[in-house]
């Protein structure tokens, strides 16, 4: 594993996420095979790989949207077991953005953002609203606060989703292909938001095929195939000098377009 860090890296020596020998099956199907991964606090990781390689499954195991059957996952020094208390504690510290945003359509943008702080963190409504407006300003859509998600463009919805996660003040953010349901001009606005977030020193795990983004902000790029981590390296090395044949093939395919 390469330890070299780029100039802008906010990476520290503290461990944020630790996966030791993680296996997962869907019925008979072995979807994650012996995953070992350490993520430092402040580290930005981009995960890529062909469709069906288990990228989503991997990051969804980190906040227990999927259950792993073997190995240990330790997030923020809390071990992820069947213990509901631990799961809740981890979910409070880990924010997640989905490919299809998963905003709550019956609540306004502001209510989407204040819901979890009010009900999970027991924050007074007024304070939660102030924090929500602060993050909506950061993702540059404070003027949409009163609208409903169905009235926003895809890019705006995804930025609301990012703001909504940030309102919980998470220490780790997970992104599962946040831009792959968006049109090109909207992709740029969402990536800009994510780059700004990276500059604040947030620990980020991001499944994406936006290679420009990976080069710019990632400390490490991980390539997965067939449920295994095939290769991981810092972005320059990863893109210019891929080690395995499968990585080379994958890169030549996505960079061809």
């Amino acid at each position: 594993m390469s330890n070299a860090s780029t100039n802008t890296s906010k990476k520290t020596d503290e461990v944020a996420i630790q996966l030791n020998g993680v296996h997962k099956w869907y019925g008979q199907f072995h979807v994650l095979k012996n995953i070992n991964l350490n993520v430092q606090r402040g580290e930005r990781i981009v995960i890529c790989g062909p469709s069906g390689s288990g990228k989503s499954t991997l990051i969804r195991c980190i906040n227990r949207l999927e259950e792993h059957q073997q190995g240990d996952i330790i997030v923020d020094n809390i071990e992820l077991t069947g213990n509901l208390k631990n799961i809740d504690a981890i979910r409070r510290e880990v924010g997640m953005c989905f490919q299809h945003f998963n905003l709550f359509p019956h609540l306004s943008v502001l209510e989407n953002c204040t819901l979890a702080p009010i009900w999970v963190r027991k924050m007074p409504k007024k304070e939660a609203e102030e924090i929500a407006m602060h993050y909506l300003e950061r993702v540059k859509i404070p003027d949409q606060a009163a609208k409903f998600p169905g009235q926003l463009s895809g890019g705006q919805q995804q930025r609301v989703a990012i703001a909504r996660s940030l309102c919980m003040n998470p220490r780790i953010m997970l992104f599962d292909e946040p831009t792959s349901a968006l049109d090109p001009e909207m992709i740029a606005e969402v990536l800009d938001t994510m780059i700004e977030l990276a500059e604040t020193g947030m620990t980020m795990l991001c499944v994406t095929h936006e290679m420009g983004f990976a080069r710019k902000v990632a400390d490490r790029v991980i390539f997965m195939d067939g449920g295994e981590i095939i290769e991981q390296n810092e972005p320059e090395e990863f893109f210019n000098n891929p080690q395995s044949e499968r990585t080379q093939k994958f890169l030549s395919q996505i960079l061809a377009h």
């Binding site: 906040n63 949207l65 809740d88 924010g95 989905f98 009900w119 999970v120």
Partner: peptide
């Protein structure tokens, strides 16, 4: 399913996510 996952990922309990989402 995304609505359940959105609620789960934000740390809402079962009853909270049922009642609110």
């Amino acid at each position: 399913k995304g609505q359940y996952e959105g609620a789960d990922a934000m740390g809402l309990s079962y009853w909270q996510s049922m009642r609110l989402i």
